[in-house]
């Protein structure tokens, strides 16, 4: 069925999904956070149906329902599909590797939230120093740990 649906419509849906920001990070799109796994448009009895497959950063994240509602609203408001069906997929498992450069830059520059480097090291998003120590694995959200930069004396957070 989906072969009958134009790729233009799929692109419309993709753009609408990407317009949704994470509720806890205004200005960071869920697409840039790597939550969007699949987008399909199928023919339905009343018109095209978008099926959006998302993966959560952490299971038990309290924002899941809100994100699904925001995606449904954006897709039905901004595209020509009749209906949007959001599904939380059991896999693949989310990791920080899924973040785009845009998300990394906004998180670091605006939120002073940083990711570990491939070698496991941390670079302070405020001053660039390596003198950053994780103080607690439990930060304000499930996806972040709390660290302290001894060089610029700022508490910063680490995506985990």
């Amino acid at each position: 069925m989906s072969t009958l649906v134009s790729t233009a419509l799929v692109d419309q849906v993709r753009a609408a999904v990407a317009s949704v920001d994470d509720p806890e990070y205004p200005d960071v799109s869920i697409a840039d956070l790597g939550l969007v796994e699949s987008i399909d448009v199928e023919a339905g009895p009343d018109g095209p149906v978008a099926v959006v497959g998302l993966i959560p950063t952490f299971s038990g994240c309290p924002a899941l329902d809100m994100i699904a509602t925001d995606v449904e609203r954006a897709v039905t408001a901004l595209t020509d599909v009749h209906e949007c069906d959001v599904r939380w997929l059991p896999g693949p498992v989310w990791s920080t590797d899924r973040l785009t450069g845009t998300a990394r830059a906004t998180l670091a520059d605006d939120y002073t939230v940083v990711l570990r480097r491939k070698d496991g090291g941390l670079r302070c998003p405020v001053c660039g120093s390596d003198d950053v120590d994780v103080q607690s694995q439990a930060g304000p959200t499930r996806c972040r740990a709390v660290a302290w930069c001894a060089a610029c004396r700022n508490p910063v957070e680490v995506m985990r």
């Binding site: 038990g60 994240c61 309290p62 329902d65 103080q135 607690s136 439990a138 930060g139 304000p140 959200t141 499930r142 972040r144 709390v146 302290w148 004396r153 700022n154 508490p155 957070e157």
Partner: peptide
């Protein structure tokens, strides 16, 4: 679902307190 929300809010507030106490103590 509401338990999940209250768990997450609790974690948020305690996490905020932690960050603020770090700034204040410094």
């Amino acid at each position: 679902r509401l338990k999940q929300i209250f768990l997450a809010k609790t974690q948020d507030e305690i996490g905020h307190a932690h960050l603020l106490y770090m700034v204040a103590a410094d």
